[in-house]
Each structure stands twice: as C-alpha cells, then as structure tokens.
Design a protein around this nucleic acid. Structure first.
Lengths: 259, 259
DNA sequence: AATTTCATATCGTGA
DNA sequence: TCACGATGTGAAATT
C-alpha cells in the first residue's frame, strides 16, 4: 500500500506513524491544533490554531492555515525533520544550517495524519515564459519593427548580458530588453544600463558621468548611436515617462500569440 | 467532529466527501495520482504522478510533489473550486477571473482525502523585518552616525516616499534607505533617485540632466547638499562601487541587535 | 559559495 | 482597481 493514514491518533501513535513515514521517505500531511515558532533569518511566533503541516522527504516543511497561497511558516528543502513526544504532546522540529534556522511545531491535538510514497511525474512543461518571448522575436524579428535584425542573445556588456542585441533598418545598434508581463520603471533602468554600457564600449569620447539620456541627436557631441527597445505586453505610466526621458521605444508584445 | 477522512475511496465517494468539505468550508488534503493542467498568465502541463492537492476555503489551491517549497502548480486565493466525476474519474477544477486562470486536476487514483474545519490562530508575530530596522534607527539614531537626527519617515518626494529623512551633525539633509538584508546595486539606484529628487526640490540651479554623482563639494557649483545613506547588513561588491560613485555612505546594521 | 535575474512570484499598502 | 515595493521571497543559471 502506498498510503498510510491514521484518524485521531494519540500523540504517541502519531509519533510512530511519523517516524515510519520519515523512514519510508513519504510525503506527509498532518492536521492538528498547534503552535508554531520560527527562528532564523527572522523570528516569529504563532499562537494555537488548527493547521495543516506538510513534511516532504527532501526536507521541506510547510505550515498552512485556511487562507493564502503562502504557508504561514515553512522550512526550505534541505532541512532535517525530527519528531518527538514531550510532556505527552507531539512536537515536530525542522532545522537547517547556512543559514541556521529552526521551525518548531507543538501539537495540542493531532486530528489526522497521512503519508504517501511519491513516484514519478515531476517534470512540468511551462509555456509563456520570457524564453518563449525571445524565441518568438528571433523567429519573427519584424514584430519588434520592420527591418530589425537580431545579432545575438545574451550578448555580454559591462552591465551584464543583454536579452537581445541587433541592428535596425539603418544599421544602428539596438538593445532589446524582454519582459513577459507589464513592467514598471525598474525595467527601464535595466535597459538604460545596457545602452549606456554599449555606448561606452562602442567608443564614448565625451559626456562622462551621466545616466543614459539616450538621444544621440544632431548636436555637437558624437555619442555612439545606440537605441533601446523595451518589449513587454504593456508598461506603467511611470515606466512610459522614463522611456520617453531616455528616448527609448516600447513594443507591445505578448510572450505567446493571442488566440 | 472537526475532521473527516476517507482512505482509498472510490472516485464517487471522493466526490461526495469533497463536496461536503466545500460546503463546510474545510481545509482539504487530497493524496492521489493525477495529471495537472494550468492555463492563465502562462500555461503548463504536468504528466501523471502522485501528488498532494490542498484546497482552501478561501479559494487557494496547491499541488505539491515530494520536492520543493513551492507547489508545482497552484491557484491563488479568490478562485472557485469545483469537483466532478467524468468518465468515472474525479476531476477538480479551480478557476478565477482577472486574470482568467484555470487549474485542472484529473485523478486516476484517489488514495486519501481529509478535511478539517479550521478555527483561530491566524495572527503571526514576525520580528526582524524592515519595519523593525526603522524602529531601531528611530530609537537609536546614533547607530546611523553620531549627530544624525531623524525628521520624518515615509517623507514624500518626486521619486516616492523615502524610508527615513533627517539631518546630520552639520545640518545637511540626509536620505536614508533601509534594507533588512544584503543588497545589490538596485538599492543604490533607488537611493540615488530619492537624493536626486530631493536636490531638485531643495532648489537645483544648474547641472541638469545628470543622475546623482553626489559630492556637493567645494567647486563652483551650488548643487544643494543632500547626503545618501544606505543602511543594510551588508552590500555586494557592485553595490559598493556604485555607492562610491555616487558619494553615498553605507552603514552596516542588522534589523535586530546581534545576540 | 556568491551574484544576478526570473517568477503563473505572492502579499500588503496606498492612491 | 492599479501601481509599487517588501519578502524569512524561492529557484535557476552563471561566475
């Protein structure tokens, strides 16, 4: 049998089942009334209440209440679970080092405990990520703009690797920053750093110490012409302002085609 | 009884228990072999495998494997759960709108199903957050530097509210940016925006179009003197460079005192 | 091990 | 509702 289960066990029965489950490498689900204490990167305390404790064979521990996607407390994978009965009550402690963290769950009542041996099916096929967006642009560069020609992905720069580097119809270098969803001002800052780094690399001669007011127009200076293009489904108002300030363009594009 | 539990139920029995649990507003734990499909902000498919499905009365749904802190698939709170038997197999669908998202879990085997009525204890007391760091500085300003005097928290600026605004021993305005943990260059950029906004507000007269090389020294220009201080446990090398570029200071401080 | 960046991030707060 | 920033963010890729 792949699943073991006990209903309203005594604290000692729960301990035995739990130790067996640890031994077998089971995925454990434990309903009960408990308090929770955490100490590590921060510290927290949670008073008595009914909760679901999930213990994984890889060391992860999750304490869930009836609300929220996030566990109210947890321990990351790589932790070590131990169970004991102290003063007649089940206690589960999960610890890890680097950083040193401890999660302690003290039960006053154990309502239900189940363990299942898990096999297979851990590979998730996910679509619609930033990588999909990059693929889409490389296959159809005209979606960025007519005449755009990608030259490289992850091209190195002084500010780190750019998402896509290419040239436009006039042969002007273009830095393309990809975001799979609506973006705020931070993405514009990221694009600006790439553009500035590329301008310096392509031979900045004067105008030192500024932060990417990217016009490169017709005045006396000979700043290398480098364009910045932000590809994202949409941008916030603040991000649009900053794009305009820098002289960058925005191309509205989804990571996957609309149906 | 606060907990119901069935072991190796038929798909129809599982459906009945599940519908009862939804009705009661139970927190549900469901072990079984299943496939999972998600479509919404992205899209994903997960082949057959043994998993734990957690269904919360607030609409959250979590699909956990035996590894990782994160669910392999999920649905946020506010979704609606529905269960049915199709072709003799239990199927759980969780949907939400805005954005439109659907999670579908198709079971080939149901091993164990439990539901618990959850009461009380949802208030977590967390220590060591950024707010703790702010409190600590307001109570002991000399931790920033001798003579520092906080004037306001969340003081508005053209770049948004600053964490802490004050003056140093010389009466020079100081913008303090707080981070509860080690920070990278982005935090320096955030601080630079506040400093620049405050300089403009306090009467910038010349040197337009640059981005905060904050010296304000003794040369001819009369840029308003505004200092920037980053309070964080530590900074990355790159962040330290940028701090030096801008003429900002770093104060090493933890959100809670070391023991 | 340290750093950087993405995520179906989630979550709270404020406008 | 949308925008913005914090999170014990987690997780992967890269150095």
């Amino acid at each position: 049998m792949t699943v073991t289960s006990v209903h309203d066990p005594s604290h000692r029965e729960a301990l035995w089942e739990l130790e067996d489950a640890f031994e077998r490498g089971d995925l454990v689900s434990l309903f009960g009334r408990c308090t929770v204490a955490y100490e590590g990167r921060a510290a927290s305390d949670l008073g008595p209440g009914d909760r679901l404790l999930v213990l994984k064979p890889d060391g992860a521990a999750l304490v869930h209440t009836d609300e929220g996607r996030q566990p109210v407390n947890w321990q990351p994978p790589g932790s070590e679970h131990r169970a004991a009965v102290r003063e007649g009550r089940l206690r589960v402690v999960s610890t890890r080092t680097n950083p040193a963290e401890t999660l302690t769950v003290r039960f006053s009542d154990v309502h239900q405990l189940s363990g299942m041996a898990v096999t297979g099916g851990r590979d998730l096929a996910l679509h619609g990520s930033e990588e999909d967006l990059r693929t889409r642009i490389l296959e159809r560069p005209e979606l960025v703009e007519p005449g755009f020609e990608p030259k490289a992905t992850e091209r190195p720069s002084g500010a780190g690797p750019m998402d896509v580097f290419g040239v436009d119809a006039d042969g002007t270098p273009v830095v393309v920053e990809l975001k799979r969803r609506r973006v705020g001002p931070d993405a514009v800052g990221q694009l600006a750093r790439y553009v500035r780094a590329l301008r310096e690399e392509l031979g900045a001669t004067e105008s030192a110490g500024d932060d990417g007011d990217g016009v490169g127009g017709g005045d006396g200076e000979t700043e290398p012409a480098v364009r910045g293009v932000l590809v994202a489904p949409s941008v916030t108002d603040r991000a649009a302002e900053r794009l305009a300030d820098r002289g960058f363009d925005h191309v509205a594009l989804e990571p996957t085609p609309e149906e």
